[in-house]
Design a binder for these strands. Structure first.
Lengths: 240, 240
DNA sequence: GCACTGTTGTTTGTTAACAATTGTACCTCT
DNA sequence: AGAGGTACAATTGTTAACAAACAACAGTGC
């Protein structure tokens, strides 16, 4: 019923809990569900036309992704963010990306490099109008994910996927209100990434490390700035 | 029924899925369940006297911990290990521990340092007979966990807990057969840890980094060696 | 003998009902 | 009026039955 089999039959069979997980993640990352808001199992189940079982599983998975918090006997809420979260997320990101670049320098295949360039191409082909914060940050994360894939490091990739969701949510959150600031920053990313591809191709591990660190630092400063400027949304009162 | 309420009532109410998770984790980490072995939901549920719901949740959690692998419509198996896993685990461990030490140098409280020394004390008070691989590695991991706690970094701690389980399982696996090798190595750990505490107390971040890296390297070499020497157990035939 | 197919049994995925816990509103008593 | 307690409502935790997918095997046709 809630199975949206668009056209062709899916290769790896999707199961209801997968569908619910993806739907819910999309709802959170598209800011349909604001941070702090309560998610009742039954309500969501009815809304999606499924039973509570798959919904429970989905909430557990999203909790591990850091998009949702669960309290015993009290249920789930959409995760909310503060300055500490930014510090934690970006400090984690730095060490993970450095490791990813080291391994990518060692193990990246020709296909991996091609995949990275493909994302890069899509970025440069964006028209001025398409160059929205949402679209650009989506491509940015896609590029970095391509680097992690190139690292061929299973555990590192799993950890990155979790952090990626949180970064995504954080960006959506900080950018949800003001659309003007981005124009001055965004164009920089493309050239950064182009340089990164070449460094990996040349297996210049030392250079890769400094390059990625400054690249991420820029992102962190931007995010911190936006976060500070952002007017706090109506706090969910049922917090204390 | 399966609720083992030993004496006093637990502070934070434990729920069935928690009990199942812990029981199953113990069974895996104590090598009662060997790597590769199949875990049927129904069987485990009956064995523990609960229904399949909590068992499913437990399996999901242990999958995220990396102790169990789940295949769609095919069920769960106890995770098994190879040389690649060792490389992945220890490369992750290095970057996580370095980050933990940086943050611990910055944010460790007096209580945190005390907690570390308490673990250290228990190590040095072990009698010759108590100094088994199992006991020593348990204390080793406990010490490192204390450092992560001292870092006061929520996401880093969560990631470490996952990796810690895997390291634990890996150690149990490599040491499951031969008990003789350890005697020559084990005594080193205590002095390493003692030095580590002092470095954190003195907030010597640079020194902490090199110290922890050589410390972990030793562990990796030992594990790799044991793993290579270990005779492969009877492969679970239902693999291919 | 070998490939194919239908059947059967086992296991996971899903559902709906039941039990237990938490939060709230109202009532009573001091 | 305020403190405390009781009943009620809402929500999560748990269970058992049902549906769907997968795996093994016997039987059929070539």
């Amino acid at each position: 019923m809630a199975v949206k089999s668009n056209g062709l039959a899916l290769a790896s069979r999707r199961v209801l809990s997968d569908v619910v997980t993806d739907d819910l993640r999309d709802a959170i990352l598209s800011h349909d569900l604001e941070p702090g808001i309560r998610i009742a199992e039954d309500g969501l189940a009815i809304q999606l036309g499924v039973s509570r079982g798959p919904v429970r599983e989905a909430l557990l998975r999203l909790e591990r992704e850091g998009l949702v918090t669960i309290e015993r006997h009290k249920g789930a809420r959409v995760a909310s963010w503060n300055e500490t979260d930014i510090e934690e997320i970006y400090s984690m990101r730095k060490v993970l990306e450095v490791l990813a670049f080291e391994w990518a320098c060692k193990y990246a295949t020709a296909e991996d490099l091609l995949a990275m360039e493909e994302v890069l191409d899509r970025y440069f082909k964006l028209t001025e109008k398409q160059r929205t914060p949402k679209e650009v940050s989506k491509l940015d994360l896609e590029f970095h994910s391509a680097v992690f894939v190139a690292a061929h490091h299973e555990r590192l990739n799993k950890t990155w996927e979790i952090l990626r969701s949180q970064i995504h949510a954080l960006l959506v959150y900080t950018w949800s209100k003001d659309e003007k600031i981005n124009k001055t920053y965004l164009p920089l990313w493309g050239t950064d990434h182009r340089e990164i591809v070449e460094v990996i191709r040349g297996k210049q591990m030392k250079k890769a490390k400094t390059l990625i660190l400054t690249h991420i630092d820029r992102g962190q400063q931007r995010t911190t700035k936006h976060f500070a400027e952002k007017p706090l949304p109506k706090q969910i009162s049922s917090e204390g």
